[in-house]
Design a protein around this nucleic acid. Structure first.
Lengths: 375, 375
DNA sequence: TTATGTTATGTTTGCGTAAACATCCCCGGG
DNA sequence: CCCGGGGATGTTTACGCAAACATAACATAA
């Protein structure tokens, strides 16, 4: 059977089984089209037959339409129950032209932000009666992204939410079926797509200002990877705040979101006595940074203050507990779904960017700078 | 308005319909069966017309069947290209009776294990040409799980992978379409389903033995939540190792996987001077534990040794870097997918449990116990 | 009474695809 | 020169559902 399907070229086998099947209508039970094994699942026609009504009435009951006599309705329901009837989603989708599914393209599930957003998306979507299909992109290259979109096109989705750096999303080269709507998290493509994002700038400002207020001369920055919009925006805001305050931004230190990269960066920063405050672009890197500082005998916050970004649940238990910028991933996810569905429903397909506010959570990793002789 | 959209049955005039479709978006919105707005996507019939062949030939090309003249094939391909043809997955699924999709039911994405496993599943599935649909279950109650399964039944999936405690999966009350296959991660339902799991016992033994070898009299255990099979198994193995070694297992301390619960547990354990070694059921709790110990002036590993479970990327940068049991989530995911697809293909639907080996990673959170006068 | 709704139900049709079956054409052997 | 056998392609059909379009039974207003 299976072989027949796969190699297919010539014989397609199956012939025999099929031929006999539909020759007469009672024997139709078979299910040649249906799943490859086991008895076919009941169809509307089966239910209709058992309930003594037309399949259209079954459809009406199945979809909760009004205008069905209560008695009939109960009979149909009973028949459904008895046969274990489940509407066939493929047929439904084919008929209605919509899949009630949202595709999510994401590069990695290694960062908390992506995962939390994904979870929120899945939950929100479920509430709206939509399923979520995951499309992992192995490597964030243009080709890979294009590949994912391409697969997506054959996939049964009504809308797509992209959680990843979207430099890679070169609109020109991607042809989506016109009915597929796109929502993007973290991008500046607000002119072409609907973008939902955390208020990166606001969070960064709060973080950096907090450090300045504590008396630090300036604030170092451990940034996220180069390609990331979120990272970019945090970096820009960091620089802007310092400049506005008349401070000189120290050289940028770059990481890649990973704890390990934070550790490596920390090994360098630990050597710089003039570094008393670091704004780190995410909590995971902050953990690595704290580790390195600790190893080099630089105490946090006495010698160096550290602020993170994300407020992952672990942050409260870092040593010391991390001051960080809290992101409302749940809300980001919810808004994504809402925007996506609005588009699907043809309501307000407005473009532009929606920002979700952040909140600075002050814990124990920040303090006034150590007193020094030289200014 | 909706009606306007839906009528069309007559006008649909294949050729005309398509051509006119994009002339304007409201009136012709056409897309009778198709999505609610925008020009309909090209169908096989459209391609066939353009290429001057029958739609069956297009189908053959589309599915890579042999027996199509090379020249014809190229013409069809060109037509597809020109029209931006994409096979309609709903129609395909309806016809073939399979969706090429795997559903994943999961309770939370808050634990690293689930996320990493999910990611591996998605990646493996993608390689096999399968998509992954996510089914979050808000609350892990029997009802919720049943609800998820119920939704799943109407959902387009060929197989299901369950990543969660499966006490809740009472087979008796769940009726799945006969063709949907189930694979479970972390359960003891090996007799009813295929189960893929990490070798919890092996990892635990390595961890506990490591602590005993260092000279600790006994080892405390901070366990995962009560309902979890994984937690249960780690606890059982921990107790078994101690008993076999002739040690007395200290009272069990229970957490819920969260860092916070580890912290709370740590506050209690820190007070017990006789506690010199703790085997923690996951890394996140270990972080909280370390935090609490640190707060109470109990040094790790000088005063207390700690071993975690999972080896999350952050563990290498805890203070101190955590000795932990490494799980191969990627492999778990791969095996799940393989098992699920084997079932789908009707190959070996064998039940039973597959265990994925673990590895103890020794870092700096474990050492010999402090010397004491007594005993 | 008859026109006119209203409500409940049935019949037809087509979504896009692919299996099954039917041609058609060309080629070589008898 | 005709026949048989493939290879290449076309035609029909059904997958399960639901929109559109009947129809039928009854109630109510004119």
């Amino acid at each position: 059977m299976d072989m027949a399907r796969k190699r297919s070229s010539d014989t397609h086998g199956s012939g025999a089984g099929t031929a006999s099947a539909d020759t007469d209508d009672t024997a139709t039970a078979d299910g040649r089209g249906r799943s490859r094994r086991g008895p076919r699942t009941a169809s509307m026609a089966d239910v209709a037959r058992l309930a003594g009504v037309s399949s259209q009435t079954v459809s009406r009951v199945s979809n909760g339409y009004a205008g069905v006599n209560e008695e009939t309705r109960r009979a149909v329901l009973a028949a459904m129950q008895e046969l274990g009837y489940r509407p066939n989603s493929a047929a439904r989708a084919l008929k209605r032209g919509e899949f009630r599914t949202i595709g999510v393209i994401t590069f990695t599930l290694a960062t908390t932000g992506n995962v939390r957003t994904l979870e929120a998306i899945a939950t929100s979507a479920a509430q709206e009666g939509y399923a979520v299909t995951l499309l992992p992109v192995a490597v964030p290259t243009q080709d890979e992204v294009r590949g994912a979109f391409s697969r997506l096109e054959e996939l049964a989705v009504d809308a797509v939410i992209v959680i990843m750096e979207v430099h890679l999303l070169d609109a020109a080269t991607i042809t989506l079926p016109p009915h597929v709507q796109v929502v993007v998290v973290d991008s500046d493509a607000g002119d072409r797509y609907t973008v939902v994002d955390t208020d990166q700038a606001g969070g960064t400002r709060a973080a950096v200002q907090h450090l300045l207020d504590l008396g630090h001369d300036t604030v170092w920055h451990l940034a996220g990877p180069e390609g990331s919009f979120a990272a970019q925006r945090r970096t820009d805001a960091w620089r802007a705040v310092l400049t506005e305050a008349g401070r000189v931004p120290p050289p940028l230190v770059q990481g890649d979101w990973s704890t390990e990269s934070g550790y490596r960066a920390g090994q360098e920063l630990a050597r710089r006595q003039d570094c008393t405050a670091v704004f780190v672009a995410n909590d995971q890197m902050a953990l690595g940074l704290q580790h390195a500082l600790h190893e080099h005998g630089r105490r946090v916050p006495e010698d160096v203050s550290v602020v993170g970004f994300d407020d992952i649940p672990e942050a409260a238990h870092f040593v010391p507990p991390l001051t960080t910028v809290q992101q409302d991933f749940a809300k980001v996810g919810r808004l994504c779904v809402r925007a996506a569905l609005r588009k699907v429903r043809g309501e307000g397909a407005e473009r532009g960017t929606t920002l979700v506010p952040t909140r600075l959570v002050v814990r124990d990793s920040t303090a006034a700078p150590p007193r020094r002789d030289a200014r």
